[in-house]
């Protein structure tokens, strides 16, 4: 009887998604749907926040005031994305503290790309161009995903990500048209960020665990390999425009497929970084934990102050009630 009822609910739920209806926080949803969404949305939120660190690394050293302001604003946008996504995640009944706890203990993941170091100013260009570029490819389909709060957050996020991508490309263009040293800096950044950017689109389909279910719930519209191909096809002409060389000797246009062929991806490196052994995993997580721990007394103070204020207010209300009764 109970099972029967749940089965009916589930059928109606799947039918709503199939009919492109949005699921809202108060709607009934299968537990697995809730859990999967918490996992994916929080992973996305964590990526935005950890992603602030590699670029934040160059705010103090930005080469001009205009670039400094643009970079600060970009990193701030990423904080905003984190904020929308944590809020969307909280609608599924998990608190921000719990989400941070999962990040800090390593239970929750974030995008591995942010475990690579930013070594020169050109990395600010390469990250905007390639990393935000790959993020857009991952995220545009999510603007029409089934969970309402996630879809709406993604619409706002994607608008800003495409701005970041153009800004990154413009930094690369300035360097590519600059002095020989600047051009070399740009090429070096492309060399270091190209392969990790391809890995950002996720493990190859054969090894991807969640795909079928995610397709049904519209958390995914295309497979990782399809997205990767789309990213490569879109980015190669941009590299040509910059006059930079993509570090892949096997990269070649395939007339028959209508796509670029490309060389093998080093998946061992990918899994090493995912498992916590990339160049900056320790530093990135360490910085997040440090900020959280050092901020504890600040957040405590804000809570204690707010409580005192509301106590005072209710005390004043009581006084006025007593006074008005007396008069």
């Amino acid at each position: 009887m109970q099972d029967d009822k749940i089965k009916k609910l589930e059928e109606r739920f799947e039918a709503r998604i199939a009919a492109d209806e949005k699921i809202e926080p108060r709607d009934w949803m299968p537990e697995k749907y809730r859990k999967t969404h918490i996992r994916q949305m929080s992973q996305h939120a964590h990526s935005e926040i950890v992603g602030m660190l590699p670029e934040g690394n160059w705010i103090s050293r930005a080469p001009s005031l205009r670039r400094k302001v643009a970079l600060l604003a970009k990193v701030q946008d990423e904080a905003g994305h984190g904020l929308y996504l944590y809020s969307a995640c909280e609608t599924l009944g998990i608190s921000r503290e719990e989400l941070f706890e999962q990040l800090h203990t390593g239970k929750a993941k974030y995008s591995s790309i942010f475990n690579y170091p930013t070594l020169t100013w050109a990395d600010m260009g390469a990250i905007g161009w390639l990393v935000d570029g790959a993020a857009i490819i991952n995220q545009v389909p999510l603007c029409s995903t089934s969970y309402g709060p996630y879809a709406r957050a993604m619409v706002r996020v994607c608008k800003e990500e495409s701005f970041h991508q153009r800004q990154g490309f413009e930094i690369m263009m300035t360097l590519a048209n600059g002095s020989p040293e600047q051009k070399e800096m740009a090429q070096d950044a492309l060399n270091r960020w190209w392969w990790p950017s391809l890995m950002m689109l996720g493990p190859t389909d054969a090894e991807s665990v969640h795909t079928a279910q995610s397709m049904k719930w519209k958390l995914k519209r295309k497979t990782n390999d399809e997205l990767r191909q789309q990213f490569i096809d879109q980015t190669v002409p941009q590299a040509d425009l910059l006059g930079l060389t993509i570090p892949d000797p096997e990269l070649k246009w395939n007339e028959e497929r209508g796509h670029y062929d490309f060389g093998p991806i080093d998946w061992d490196e990918f899994w090493q970084v995912v498992k916590g052994h990339g160049p900056c995993n320790k530093e990135r997580l360490g910085a997040r934990v440090k900020a959280w721990e050092e901020g504890q007394w600040v957040r405590d103070a804000a809570v204690a102050y707010a409580e005192k204020q509301s106590n005072e207010r209710s005390l004043k209300r009581e006084e006025t009630v007593i006074q008005s009764k007396a008069s």
Binding site: I49, M52, L53, G56, I59, S60, L65, K68, V69, L72, A73, V75, Q76, A79, G80, G82, L83, Y86, A287, K290, A291, E294, G295, Q296, V298, R299
Partner: peptide, 27 residues
């Protein structure tokens, strides 16, 4: 600007960056 990404909470981080951005605009 040195604080950006290291604030005690996301909201405070964003607010401090805002102030930094205002100041650089004035500069």
């Amino acid at each position: 600007g040195q604080l950006c990404g290291h604030g005690p909470s996301l909201e405070v981080d964003i607010a401090c960056t805002n102030i930094s951005l205002d100041l650089f605009g004035q500069v």
